[in-house]
Design a protein around this nucleic acid. Structure first.
Lengths: 218, 218
DNA sequence: ATTACTATAGTGCGAGTAA
DNA sequence: TTTACTCGCACTATAGTAA
């Protein structure tokens, strides 16, 4: 698909034969033909057979896949200064609220973030293709929150990353993602803010939000 | 490798375990482990085993592969306004010179390019990984040269793209690539110029040159 | 906890070929 | 000339497991 896009397939229909494609990709004609069919099945390409070949266009679904790649490489080579991730609101176990309300954490939040978090977390399940970005985010300028012991329990270290949170209608700029340092693989990020986000954003489970994290100087 | 680069592996060593990598890529731990080994074998990655995982860095060879991808996506999404391709000089069959010297073509060249081409072509065999760019080039602002009939023969249509040509020491800005419209897959591009390029550039077969084509407004 | 070997299961490739 | 089917083979992934 990248090859087709390179010929301008994202802007206008492209005439190509499976033999031509196969030579450019270094695969057999049969495979090139199969690739095109698969891309059509996935909804990335529109295709019609034509005299001596076929005419293909990259559809929006395909363009967004390519854009995703483009944005990844932008992150790698540092042109892009922010990461945007989309996620769906879900109800957590209430644990987040319990943890952050602990004085040992709360004091540090206030000191580093310059605001006092509302005692609850806003849990976003990031969409599948955002997973690499969660990791990339950790390259961002975060604050390390120290762990502590209390009532014979250990509360571990955590990273905090300032971010903004928005949907189509509303935006809250004073937010932060809190992420346990001893990281288990998770697709859910917990967002804190000085205000009660569910109220302010008129949010309910299943709503989609965009998080924007400033990468700082990479 | 892109995943590792996204965590900053192009800038500093990254700590990662094969299990962590496998979950992020959606493959088995065994495959993740194998991927890393293969990337090391290819010279893309440097790796050493460490406490609870391994520490990897993306080597220059790997970075250049990623940069290549980045540049492709830049072409697709139009941030980049020029295409640079490297190729090696070779001796053609002398056909090119015969064709362009035909009055039917020569008159059009002078009109569209504002200069009179030297009656010979400078044949560059583009390097393997430049192949997609040849096609991307065709999205550039080219001039269509009309075909004609002469002495019972048909001389076909062709595209002409203004470009510059350089090596480490010299540069010639007034050049153009001429490419038959009825395109057969070819890795050799023919460059014309008002001057005798081999002389001016002190070029001999096997020398490597860089062609830069202006993409115009994409 | 890790990494990574071996053996098996599974997927994808291309030759042959029809339309 | 095309596209694209079937099918055998090879390559690739994973399960099991050792270190």
């Amino acid at each position: 698909m990248k090859f087709i896009a390179l010929q301008g397939g994202t802007r206008h229909p492209i005439h190509i034969s499976s033999i031509n494609l196969s030579k450019n990709l270094g695969v057999s004609q049969q495979s090139a033909s199969r690739y095109l069919i698969e891309l059509v099945e996935k909804g990335y390409l529109e295709r019609r057979l034509a005299q001596g070949g076929q005419v293909v266009t990259v559809l929006n679904k395909g363009i967004s896949v390519l854009r995703k790649e483009f944005s990844d490489y932008n992150l790698i080579f540092g042109t892009q200064k922010e990461i945007e991730m989309k996620g769906t609101l879900e109800t957590g176990l209430g644990e987040g609220g319990y943890y952050i309300s602990k004085k040992g954490y709360m004091d540090q939040f206030q000191k580093k973030l310059k605001w006092k978090p509302y005692e609850g977390t806003f849990n976003l399940r990031l969409h599948d293709d955002e997973v690499p970005k969660i990791e990339a985010m950790k390259a961002a300028e975060g604050f390390l929150i120290e762990g502590f012991e209390q009532e014979g329990r250990t509360f571990g270290k955590a990273w905090v990353f300032k971010c903004s949170l928005k949907n189509e209608k509303r935006i809250v700029k004073e937010c932060a993602i809190i992420s346990p340092k001893r990281t288990h693989y998770r697709r859910v990020v917990e967002v804190i803010s000085p205000i009660f986000l569910r109220d302010k954003l008129k949010a309910k489970d299943g709503d989609v939000f965009t998080i924007k994290v400033d990468l700082g100087d990479v």
